[in-house]
Every structure is written in C-alpha cells, then in structure tokens.
Write a protein that binds this DNA or RNA. Structure first.
Length: 263
DNA sequence: ATGGTCGGTCCCCGA
C-alpha cells in the first residue's frame, strides 16, 4: 500500500478546474497540496473535487494566494490554518493536516511561500521572515517524530542545476544567497528535499513562465518541493515531476510534483 | 517587423 502526495500551484483553481479534474482522474493522487487557489473558501469548487473521492480543506483569500489540501484518506485534524509565529497573518499561505496512514498519522502541509520580489525590499524581508517562521515550526514538528511532508511552492531555486540559466535569474528573490541559505537552514534541521536527494537529477523543472516562450524552450525553474521529516524520508519510494499538465490548454505556469511513500 | 503572459479585479497588481 502506498501513499502518493502531490503538490501543484494551480494559479487560480476556478480558471484551472477542468485541467485539475482531468489530472486528478488520471493521476489519482491520494493527497494533493494546492497553492494559489486565488479564491475565498466559499468559492472553491468543492463539490466537483469531492465527487472524485476527496476530502477538501481550504484556506482561501480573495484574489491572491490561498492553499488547499485534498485527501482520499480521512483528514483527522486540521492542525494549523496559519503558519505559527504570526497568528494575525493576512495572507493565506499555510494549511497543515493530520491524515490517516496505514500505520499511524501522516502530517501534510500545503505551503505557498512568498515570492519575495522585488529584492531587496519589504517583500523580500517578508519572504525571509516567513522562512524564519517556517524553520521554527518545522523544527517543532520534528520533535513529534512523525512522518511529516511539507509540500508546496517554496519560490526557491535550490541549486544552479535547478534553473535553465542561473545567470538569467541572478539577483532574483528565488535564487538569492539569503533565500537559499534560509531553505538550507530548514533542511539542516533534519529535513530531506525529496527530489534533490535522488542522485543525478538536474534541469528538471516545475515552473515555466508564461512569457517569452519559456515552456517550448524549456526555460524552467524547479521551485516546488517536498520536504520530508526523517520518518517520511525513510518511507519515500520515488518522486517525479509530471510535465503533462503544463503542456495542456489553459495550463497553470506550474506542473505537479508527486512523491510516493510506503505510508 | 512587430509583439511577444496570465488571472483577478476594477482600469492595475502580483507572479
């Protein structure tokens, strides 16, 4: 028995609904972490997703941001709807749930980390502050000694091998040294970044800009990640990027990444 | 040669 956990920034769930439904039907992931749903909770196409066999939990916001968790397994508890550390956070960027595993609980979060551009500036400061909060919370989760999967759009290009041309992105908030250091700091707590721990993987992307023919030229970046606690990393079978949805009509600029776990 | 992106919302902002 395996548990598949996907992460996908859909860039508006309403604009993407036919594509999302098609993908859920064909890929049949057990758990899906969505980002940038760009709607309030009451406007989420809940019934269309529930009809596919998913439990649905959302943290929505008008126009911007917004995250959701879809799960075929029972959701035992929503442990957080805001990233701890700033409870009056106005931006919908975090939801964390406890999901029933084959042998105990699995904790899954859908994360939409701030973009941070332009940098430097207040938006970049917000990104780094948000990452510091994430580090604190991720550390606290490790103490539970549970399988934890922190999945989402991190807006971080971890290595130069995760971008078609690092020079073209120099100075961008997604690639700056401070951004990478903040991401590394979370990993150093004891988290494994699922995709990069597989040897020899380079220049496989999860995002291609709408502009300048980035998709046909494969001018992409890898910014959607699964961070795993040791108890989740031990049970990871494989992790893959599914480029299919990016090539469809009315595509999101991101495509899903899927981890398969013995959980 | 020129223009060359989306989505949501309100005529511009965020990515």
């Amino acid at each position: 028995m395996t548990l598949t956990v996907a992460s996908w920034n859909v860039n508006s769930v309403k604009a993407r609904l036919p594509g999302v439904v098609d993908w859920l039907k064909s890929a049949e992931p057990d758990v899906v972490c969505l980002q940038e749903i760009k709607c309030q909770d009451e406007d989420f196409p809940r019934m269309e997703i529930e009809d596919l066999g998913y439990n649905v939990e959302t943290v929505g916001q008008k126009s911007y941001n917004g995250v959701a968790l879809l799960s075929k397994r029972p959701i035992d508890e929503i442990s957080h709807r805001v990233l701890p550390g700033k409870e009056d956070e106005p931006q919908a960027r975090y939801i964390e749930a406890v999901i029933s595993g084959e042998s105990g609980a699995v904790r899954v979060a859908s994360i939409y980390l701030p973009n941070g551009n332009p940098s430097p500036g207040p938006k970049y400061d917000y990104k780094l502050d948000w990452m510091a909060r994430l580090k604190t919370h991720a550390g606290a989760l490790l103490a539970l000694e549970e399988p934890v999967i922190l999945a989402g759009d991190y807006n971080i290009i971890p290595r130069d091998d995760d971008v078609f041309d690092a020079a073209a992105w120099a100075g961008d908030a997604l690639i700056r040294e401070e951004s990478r250091d903040a991401f590394s700091a979370i990993k150093w707590l004891g988290y494994t970044e699922a995709f990069e721990q597989v040897d020899g993987r380079a220049h496989q992307y999860t995002f291609w800009d709408y502009q300048a023919g980035a998709w046909p030229k494969n001018n992409g970046i890898r910014i959607d990640h699964l961070l795993l606690s040791p108890q989740a990393a031990d049970r990871l079978d494989s992790v893959e990027i599914d480029r299919g949805p990016r090539g469809k009509e009315k595509a999101s600029d991101h495509t899903p990444i899927i981890g398969t776990f013995r959980l």
